[in-house]
Design a protein around this nucleic acid. Structure first.
Lengths: 235, 235
DNA sequence: ACAATTATTCATCACATGATGAATAGAATG
DNA sequence: CATTCTATTCATCATGTGATGAATAATTGT
């Protein structure tokens, strides 16, 4: 029990330890936790512990817990947004006048579903995070809008080309349903696994990629092409 | 500064205060908070304060915070589940051999959308709560399944009648998309308001009720009726 | 070589958290 | 009317919380 001063390792670390980069390590750990439990379900200590750093470092880089969360949310948003715009533009150019609703929607979904299909855990977590945010009444709409609305307007512009004289309202409502379907898909709760008794798997993004665009495109056409509404229920 | 013992009001209250019933008041307050911020975003103190009771009472009735959450979640589930089953059964009986996919889905959606359309704040909060849970990766799938799967199987049974020889997988995936669209609708984040610059409103359940069943039914038919897939993309 | 800057850990603060045992007043029971 | 039961509040506990200032070592700039 002597008062020996244990020599502690403090201050800047040796160069060797940086490669994965502390900031990235913190962001990865935060992404992992936030995606599973949401903003309030995570403590900065948990994140710091997983990243193997002191909580003070986390505040040093990201100021507040909220700052960390926003940094996580925006990190991959830019990447995916760029990919989605490129994908849509490529399809529109390639299809020319033969543009279809299903083609546009497929082009919009591809970047996300492809990334999800690789099984990369980081992207996986990130998508689940989007799902959480999109269903957070308090501030989800604002955050989602700020981050993704430009791309969505790009999508809607492309859809207008495939649907001449379409009503704006129908277009937005249709996107709303698309957004919901996509969000639940990305949140990966495993519910459909249980419901279907193993017949369908939340993680089977190949199956999803095959079905989602046709399903959604069909809904769009039904809502946005009045003439298709011929077989209206008569009762 | 005398040591006068301030006479505090303790013990069982006068009868007059019970009418709204303490348990109900706590559940209402909890519903309000949980729906907005999720399980981790709420403290028992906040709930107790809004319900104007001591936190101890809350533990007295519901044991733990989690117990309170589950009680909130289950309270209205029974009601809505019963209504949905009755609605589906009524439609199936009424339609007879003229049963349609859109009719079944409409019957399934009606009870929820009708309640949402009244603007009742309590149901409103409850639906947002469902949305939160449905997108909680950690335990959302399990909770949702336990609470709602029986009704969903009922829905799927009815859909089978409208879609003879349908593939089970297509049926479940279609429901998955339906579930996502409905969930986002109920979560009411206001995102579509911003996106459409006020043209569409999250709270406009009349508009949703008119569009959702046709949109979703069309997707179902596209996926579940192979012969409809004639106009496959050729490129 | 020295000074300034940057990245990191340590120690700690003020306050919030879920939970609980004891106290107490009214209601129910006999 | 005495006893037991139920519903409620009070006071408090141990732990967890986000955050921060000081210390310190490596790096960078001069």
């Amino acid at each position: 029990m002597s008062t020996k001063r244990r020599k502690v390792r403090r201050g800047r670390p040796l160069k060797a330890s940086s490669p994965p980069d502390m900031q990235q390590r913190i962001l990865d750990a935060a992404e992992d936790h936030f995606s599973r439990h949401g903003f309030w379900g995570v403590t900065v200590r948990e994140v710091a512990q997983e990243a193997k750093v002191d909580t003070a470092l986390l505040h040093y880089y990201f100021d507040t817990k909220r700052g960390l969360f926003d940094a996580v949310f925006e990190r991959r948003a830019e990447i995916i947004n760029k990919e989605r715009i490129e994908s849509i533009d490529a399809y529109v150019k390639e299809a020319g006048s033969a543009i279809t609703v299903e083609g546009v929607i497929d082009a919009f979904l591809q970047p996300i579903l492809r990334r999800a299909a690789t099984g990369d855990q980081h992207w996986h977590n990130y998508f689940a995070l989007i799902a959480q945010v999109n269903n957070t009444p308090a501030w989800g709409g604002e955050t989602m809008g700020r981050t993704f609305d430009p791309v969505i307007h790009h999508l809607i512009d492309a859809l207008r080309k495939a649907l001449p004289d379409v009503s704006e309202q129908e277009l937005y409502w249709s996107y709303h349903f698309l957004s919901g379907a996509l969000t639940l898909t990305l949140s990966q709760t495993g519910r459909i696994d249980r419901l279907s008794e193993g017949l369908c798997k939340s993680s089977d993004f190949t199956a999803i990629a095959q079905r989602m665009a046709p399903f959604i495109a069909s809904g769009f056409e039904r809502l946005c092409k009045p003439q298709t509404a011929a077989k209206r229920k008569k009762s």
